[in-house]
Every structure is written in structure tokens, then in C-alpha cells.
């Protein structure tokens, strides 16, 4: 005879608001791109503190940095945390991809049997999950009412304690200098591979007698990279203009001019080579700055597309001309 087990075991994982040294180190490593794509917690239901069936349910992503950012704000608090399987991606990006989405939430509610754990019908979602989740469909198919909480985890306690009322400030996405600064290591690290390829090409050119490329070229290039991937993001709102590529180009241009006026750190530098770098380096900074659109919180697809349609051809032409000048310089 078939033996159908109707009562599946309800699995609840314990967690706490205390971050360990390992958690903090893990977050730091992820910022630098170490193990970043595999920094996950197991999806499912977690118990923080000592929640009863009336305790609030907070829904989050299974990127460990996201999960940690939420639980560290919940000191002396009892809550259920429902972790969705977002493949180790934060709430905002996962909502954009649809993994922090309606289907995953409905599935996860069923898997953890939330209606057997809590006695209420309310889920608190981070506001930035809203682009992936359809609140009225969740209610229709599961009976749970979705309440969008604040953007930032640090406001979650105040939000709950004030009877689920978010202030305008809690609802607004900001992008402070510090927010931007913590994103720059990954921008820098992601330039390493292409930079090594460029150094390799220059080394080969040296070997076959075209060049010589040395410390001066290295210094000029590294400066342009740091300007595009670190300085432009940090100084973003203070740089005139709107398009990211323009902002990066502008600072990159200043970098080259300052170097030319100071005579570069090393002596011999022909006019041709200087002109070449004036054409090559600002677009390098511009390109890296343009890539920061993906990390920013206020760009739109249509906007980025518009700036790219102008910036990319301009970059290619400028770098192409600059490379010709530098090669010509090497031959004369």
C-alpha cells in the first residue's frame, strides 16, 4: 500500500544578529571580488532571536552579504527571516533578473510551509525587491499580503516598531560617497585582466623592437585606470555634466594635461607620444567610468544606451588615432 506522508518536516535554521569575524572578513573579500559569486547562505526559513507565531516575517536574498546586512540590524529582536534562492545575488540585482521574484517567493512559501509556522498573513519585503515581485499576485496565490519595507536594513526595526510605516527618507535610494567608495575595489579588480593583456601586448612590442614602453607608460595608464574606476565614482556628483563617460573622460583629460604640464615623471616624451596619450587615456577613464553606471543607483537603461551610442564610437576613434600616433612615434 502506498504510504503518503502528509506532514513534511518543517525545517527552521537558527541565526543571530551577531556577525562573527569570519562574516566581516567574508564581506571584505567579496568587495574585492574574492569568492564573490559563491558567497551564499542556504535558502529557507531562519529563526532570529526567539520569534513566536506572531513575529514578523522578513524576506531577503541569499547573498550572504545581504543576509548579514539584514540580521546585524536586528539586535534584541525576534523575527522570522525567509531567504529566497537568488543564486547568491543581492535583492536589487536579483529583482532585476527575476530571481528575487513572484515565482520564487510563492515556491519558497510552500517549501517552508510558512502558514504552519506563523499565525498572521503578512510578509515584509525590502522595497528594492519590488521590481521583481508582484504584490497582488502573491496575495492572490498564497494569501500572504506583501508589505514593502524600507530600502535599507538599518531602518527595518524602526519601520516595524512604527506600525509598518515608512518615512520618505526610508523609501529613497541614496548613493553617498561612502556607498560609492565601497564599490570601487571590485571595479578596480575587474580591470586587472584586460590591463595584464595590454601590458603583454606592450611587452611583445618591446620585444620586436617597437617601443620602448616602460615605467612612464605604465604610470600614465595606471593613473587613467584609477581615475576611471575609483576617482570618478567617488567624486561622481561633483564632476560637471551628466553622462558617466563624459565625467570619466573629463577627469582623464585633466590627468593627462597635468602630467604634460609637469613634464611627466620621466624626461623624454615626444610631442607625438604626448598627443597619442591625450587621445588614448581619457577614453580609457571614460570607458571605466561608463561601466560604473551598472553600480550606480540612478541610471536608466534608456539613458545608458543613449550615452553609449555617442561614447563608444568616440572612444574607438580616439583610441585608434592615439595608437597610430604612438606607433608612428616608435618608428621615427
Amino acid at each position: 500500500m502506498l504510504d503518503i506522508v502528509l506532514n513534511r518536516e518543517i525545517k527552521i535554521n537558527p541565526t543571530s544578529s551577531q556577525l562573527t569575524t569570519q562574516d566581516i572578513l567574508g564581506a571584505w573579500k567579496a568587495r574585492w571580488g574574492i569568492n564573490r559569486m559563491n558567497y551564499k547562505v542556504e535558502p529557507g526559513l531562519y529563526r532570529l532571536g526567539n520569534p513566536d507565531p506572531n513575529a514578523p516575517v522578513l524576506v531577503t536574498a541569499n547573498y550572504k552579504m545581504t543576509f548579514d546586512a539584514l540580521r546585524k540590524e536586528l539586535t534584541n529582536f525576534d523575527a522570522w527571516i525567509l531567504v529566497l534562492d537568488t543564486k547568491g545575488v543581492n535583492v536589487w540585482c536579483a529583482a532585476g533578473k527575476g530571481t528575487f521574484g513572484t515565482t520564487e517567493l510563492l515556491n519558497r512559501l510552500a517549501v517552508v510551509q510558512l502558514d504552519n509556522v506563523v499565525s498572521h498573513k503578512t510578509l515584509i519585503l525590502p522595497q528594492l525587491g519590488a521590481s521583481g515581485v508582484c504584490a497582488h499576485d502573491i496575495q492572490k496565490f498564497s494569501g500572504f499580503k506583501v508589505v514593502y519595507g524600507p530600502v535599507r536594513a538599518k531602518d527595518i526595526k524602526e519601520f516595524i516598531q512604527s506600525g509598518m510605516k515608512a518615512t520618505d527618507e526610508m523609501r529613497t535610494v541614496t548613493f553617498s560617497a561612502y556607498d560609492r567608495l565601497v564599490l570601487t575595489p571590485i571595479e578596480l579588480v575587474s580591470t586587472f585582466r584586460i590591463s595584464l593583456m595590454i601590458f603583454g601586448v606592450l611587452f611583445l612590442l618591446n620585444l620586436i623592437g617597437i617601443g620602448p614602453f616602460g615605467a612612464v607608460d605604465f604610470y600614465a595608464y595606471v593613473g587613467a585606470v584609477i581615475i576611471g574606476s575609483v576617482l570618478t565614482p567617488v567624486l561622481l556628483p561633483w564632476i560637471p555634466g551628466r553622462a558617466f563617460a563624459w565625467k570619466g573622460w573629463f577627469l582623464g583629460f585633466i590627468w593627462v594635461i597635468v602630467n604634460l604640464l609637469m613634464g611627466w615623471p620621466s624626461s623624454e616624451y615626444s610631442v607625438l607620444k604626448a598627443l597619442g596619450y591625450l587621445l588614448i587615456l581619457p577614453p580609457v577613464s571614460a570607458y571605466l567610468a561608463m561601466n560604473f553606471t551598472g553600480s550606480s543607483t540612478y541610471t536608466s537603461f534608456s539613458g545608458v544606451l543613449k550615452e553609449m551610442k555617442i561614447a563608444i564610437p568616440a572612444m574607438i576613434i580616439s583610441i585608434g588615432l592615439g595608437a597610430i600616433l604612438i606607433l608612428v612615434n616608435s618608428f621615427i
Binding site: 521590481s131 558617466f244 545608458v304 553609449m308
Partner: peptide, 10 residues
């Protein structure tokens, strides 16, 4: 028309 405001993705 939803989309990502990310040059790398484009």
C-alpha cells in the same frame, strides 16, 4: 520598457 542601467550588461 524595463531594463538595466548598466553599460557592461548592454
Amino acid at each position: 520598457k524595463p531594463g538595466v542601467g548598466c553599460a557592461a550588461a548592454i
